[in-house]
Design a binder for these strands. Structure first.
Lengths: 228, 228
DNA sequence: CGCACAATTCAACGTCTGTTGAATTGAAAG
DNA sequence: CTTTCAATTCAACAGACGTTGAATTGTGCG
């Protein structure tokens, strides 16, 4: 039975469908179906409104995705710029660990979307890659400063390439956030909710030994191991 | 003008369209359009045949993608199992570097497809994740043995988690192969054809210091820096 | 009350989708 | 020469797609 659904009344609803709610729905559907296959009808269905309403708030499907892209960067950027302040005299180990925590705080909630972004970057899709680069560049730049300051202070190996070190640190953190919760339960009997914590600690342990000038020096206690 | 294209003759062509050629076309289109949005018509167009022919060689679109998935694993597995032979007495540094080279040899040719795989894993798509796990498990297992042998021989830190170390080593190599050739030219004036070489050396330098028991010991000369 | 307007839905468009059953044809086998 | 069969194309299906223009309705202001 096609179940013809009595026509919903037109005009404003009692509670407005605000654009942010639309973005939530869009994120879920994009993550599930992919950039091109995600349908506005599915997004509208999930948001409980008509597809045409999306065009009231956004110019097109592509613009909707662009809005989604720019959603999390400002929060990360703010925290990471604060962290890069050269008057911050905490040890480099603590500050780099903090980078991982910031990423987890802001990005753990939307897995799925990152594979799309990665795909667009890898195939070099003009518009989207430019957009992502513009958002990402200041974040990368701030983290890179933390590395440069660490080198100047004699805590990190002077032959480090700060940009590549930044890439390694954060790229792996994204893989830990997205992939490990699926992989570790399958390959190692580690429950999904522990996967990120275990992965982060192991990664930072390895990474720190890889970048520190004196890797023997014991790591300071790293705060916030498993709280979310 | 729709340009009505004179009907091509039916029946076998002078040169058969073999399934491997179909897979090449499928790979390009899947990488470009995504798993669900890639159309059999686009794949057929690229392969120079009719969409219906795909159904002669493969059961469905999904089966075509599954065939694509299983394409590169056997080659990697063979090399990596050979490498894991416990009678191989070369230094762990050399053997782990060899892992990176094997990955580059077999996987550098198809970027684009990996983001799709990652996406399916992250969203836990039943059938596909199982398929990938089945292919990946023996590869992971072999590399993990190299770590375990390294620990036994006193070359690697005994507190290493072999599975996570394997994950870190190969996951980053995939990011280096796929992402760096796009990212480094944009952020650092490094030409795309040098990006992979630069990235691999920086990564292994960091990684080795992170896993070695005596990180001070100089790395042996690592072969095959930039040949393809 | 009446007016303006923001927020919403409806209906329709042309196009593309995965898949299938039937038709065709060249070459190999007898 | 005929038969067989593997390899290929064609035509058609019902449904989904992004997008748009017009229609509707609740709310706040005068």
């Amino acid at each position: 039975m096609p179940l013809p659904l009595p026509p919903r009344s037109r005009g404003p609803k009692p509670t407005k469908v605000d654009p942010d709610h639309l973005l939530d729905a869009a994120q879920a559907v994009f993550a599930q179906d992919g950039l091109r296959a995600a349908s506005l009808r599915a997004i509208a269905r999930r948001a409980g409104c008509d597809p045409a309403l999306i065009y009231y708030h956004f110019e097109s499907k592509e613009a909707l995705f662009a809005a989604l892209l720019q959603r999390r960067f400002p929060g990360v950027l703010k925290e990471v710029e604060f962290l890069a302040d050269e008057k911050d005299t905490r040890s480099s180990a603590l500050r780099l660990w903090e980078v991982l925590l910031i990423y987890r705080r802001h990005l753990a909630q939307d897995p799925g979307i990152r594979s799309l972004i990665r795909g667009e970057i890898v195939k070099g899709a003009e518009g989207i890659t430019d957009l992502i680069e513009a958002q990402m560049r200041p974040v990368i730049s701030a983290i890179r400063q933390v590395f440069e300051q660490g080198i100047e202070r004699g805590e990190l190996r002077p032959e480090l390439h700060p940009l590549l070190a930044t890439f390694f640190l954060v790229k792996m953190q994204l893989e830990i956030l997205d992939v490990l919760p699926v992989l570790l339960p399958r390959l190692a009997n580690i429950p999904p909710e522990m996967a990120v914590g275990v992965g982060m600690r192991a990664w930072f342990d390895l990474f720190w030994r890889g970048v520190a000038l004196d890797p023997g020096a014991p790591l300071p206690a790293l705060p916030d191991p498993d709280t979310r």
